[in-house]
């Protein structure tokens, strides 16, 4: 990945971090915007998915870092509630962000492409 690509990836991940504070729905919004803009990076849709997953992982890591014991208690008890292995619940969280971003970026990308191919409508 180029420096430019890495920077774009990190900026996008940061955007996901901040957008998540507004609500989970902001993840597909940011991803769709990213896709719509069709940035000149390799595999932009996959980039969006990875950046969203990373952003939510960053949130989880931040909470883990604040209080590892509380985090372990919470994951353990949530896992027992559903019931799912705790690790799977964490994975599901990251997967949700990644899938939301992937789908929204793909749709945004298609929309951007469609409009770009018909400049009169833009």
């Amino acid at each position: 990945m180029s420096v430019r690509g890495a920077l774009a990836f990190l900026l996008l991940a940061l955007a996901f971090v901040l957008a998540s504070w507004l609500g989970w729905w902001a993840v597909p919004v940011v991803a769709a915007a990213w896709g719509f803009l069709r940035p000149a990076v390799r595999r932009p849709i996959l980039t969006a998915a990875l950046a969203a997953g990373l952003a939510w992982a960053a949130w989880l890591l931040w909470d883990f870092g604040r209080d590892p014991a509380a985090f372990a208690r919470l994951t353990g008890r949530l896992g027992a509630v559903f019931p799912l292995p705790s690790a799977l619940l964490l994975l599901l969280t990251l997967l949700l962000a990644a899938l939301l971003a992937w789908c929204a970026a793909a749709v945004g990308c298609w929309l951007g492409g469609a409009l770009a191919s018909n400049p009169h409508e833009r």
Binding site: W24, W59, L60, F64, D67, L92
Partner: peptide
């Protein structure tokens, strides 16, 4: 609803922040 529930910024994982 999985969105608000799993969102780590404001969802269930944030309960760690109010644990103590």
């Amino acid at each position: 609803a999985l969105g608000p529930f799993l969102n780590p910024a404001t969802g269930v994982w944030s309960l760690v922040r109010s644990a103590e």
